Measured scan of single mutants.
Amino acid sequence: MTYKAILNGKTLKGETTTEAVDAATAEKVFKQYANDNGVDGEWTYDDATKTFTVTE
C-alpha cells in the first residue's frame, strides 16, 4: 500500500511517499524522515487518503 506524507516544516516543505504494509509502519518511516530533515511538529493522519501531515 502506498502512503503519503505532507511536510509543512519551517525549513522543509514538500511531499514524499512510501510503500508499507500498514499505517503504523509508514508512520515510523515518515517520522524518521522528518527527524532526519529537522522537522518536528504536530502529526495527523487521514485514513481515507492514506496521508500523514506534519506541521511545525
Rank of each mutant, 00 (worst) to 15 (best):
N37Y: 13
Y3L: 02
A26S: 00
Q32P: 00
T53Y: 13
L7R: 00
T25L: 06
T16Y: 15
T55A: 05
A26R: 00
T53D: 01
E27K: 10
K31V: 07
D47F: 09
K13C: 13
F30I: 02
D40K: 13
G38A: 06
N8W: 12
N8T: 06
N35A: 15
V39Q: 03
T44N: 08
Y45K: 00
T2G: 05
G38P: 00
F30P: 00
D36G: 06
N37F: 14
E42Y: 13
A20W: 02
M1A: 13
V39W: 15
Y33R: 03
K13A: 06
T25K: 05
E56W: 12
A24D: 10
I6F: 07
D36K: 10
A34P: 00
T53H: 08
T51D: 00
F52Q: 00
K28W: 09
D46P: 01
K4M: 07
D22Q: 02
Y45C: 02
T25D: 10
T17F: 14
D46I: 04
T53A: 04
Y3S: 02
E27I: 11
D22C: 05
L7V: 09
W43V: 03
A20K: 01
K50E: 02
T18G: 02
K10H: 13
V54F: 15
T51A: 03
D46V: 05
V54M: 14
G41Y: 05
A5M: 15
T18Q: 05
G14F: 15
K13I: 09
K10W: 11
N37G: 05
D46F: 04
E15I: 11
A20S: 07
D47K: 08
G9A: 06
T49E: 06
A24F: 10
N8M: 11
T55Q: 07
K50D: 01
I6N: 05
I6Y: 07
G41M: 04
W43P: 01
N8E: 07
A24P: 08
N37V: 14
K4F: 12
F30N: 00
T53Q: 06
M1I: 14
E19F: 15
M1S: 13
E27H: 12
G38S: 06
L12H: 14
T18F: 13
T17Q: 11
A48W: 07
E56K: 02
K50L: 12
T51C: 04
L12R: 07
F52V: 01
E19S: 11
A5Q: 03
K50A: 06
A24S: 11
N37T: 06
D47Q: 09
N37K: 12
D40N: 13
T11M: 10
E15F: 14
Y33N: 02
V54I: 13
L7G: 02
Y33Q: 04
T2M: 12
E27T: 04
V39C: 05
N8D: 10
T49D: 05
A5H: 04
N8P: 04
K50S: 05
E19A: 08
G9I: 07
A34V: 07
A24E: 13
T55R: 05
A34Y: 06
A5K: 00
D47L: 06
K28Y: 08
K10G: 07
Y45I: 01
E42V: 14
A5Y: 09
A26P: 02
A5F: 15
D46G: 00
K13F: 10
D36L: 12
T16M: 15
G9D: 03
D40T: 13
V54W: 12
T49M: 06
D36S: 09
N35Y: 15
A48P: 06
T2W: 13
M1N: 14
F30L: 06
K50Q: 10
D47W: 08
D40H: 14
G9Y: 06
G38L: 06
T2D: 04
A5P: 04
M1V: 13
T18C: 15
A23K: 13
E42R: 10
T16L: 15
K13W: 11
A24R: 09
T16R: 10
A20D: 03
T49F: 05
D40A: 11
G9H: 06
G14Y: 14
E15A: 09
L12F: 15
V39S: 01
V39Y: 10
E19P: 04
T2E: 09
A26Y: 00
T17Y: 14
V54H: 04
G14W: 15
L7T: 03
N35H: 14
L7I: 15
A20Q: 06
A24T: 10
G38K: 06
V39T: 03
A23Y: 13
E19T: 14
T44D: 09
N35Q: 15
E15Y: 13
K4C: 08
K28D: 06
E19G: 05
Y45M: 00
T51P: 00
A23H: 08
V21M: 13
D46C: 10
A48I: 11
E27D: 04
T2A: 08
E15D: 05
V54Y: 08
T51E: 04
N35T: 14
K28M: 12
L7F: 15
E15M: 12
D40G: 09
A34D: 01
A34H: 02
V21P: 15
G38R: 06
Q32V: 08
Y33M: 07
T18K: 04
T25Q: 13
G41C: 04
A20P: 01
G41V: 03
Y3V: 02
T49W: 04
A48R: 10
D40E: 14
G14K: 14
L12A: 08
A34T: 05
Q32W: 05
T18W: 08
I6S: 04
T18S: 04
D47G: 07
G14I: 15
Y33A: 03
L12Y: 15
Y45F: 06
A34R: 00
V54G: 01
K13Q: 13
I6G: 02
T49G: 04
E27G: 07
L12T: 10
Y45S: 02
T53V: 08
A23V: 12
A34C: 12
K28I: 12
E56S: 08
G41D: 02
Q32I: 09
Q32A: 10
G9N: 04
V39R: 02
T2F: 09
A24I: 11
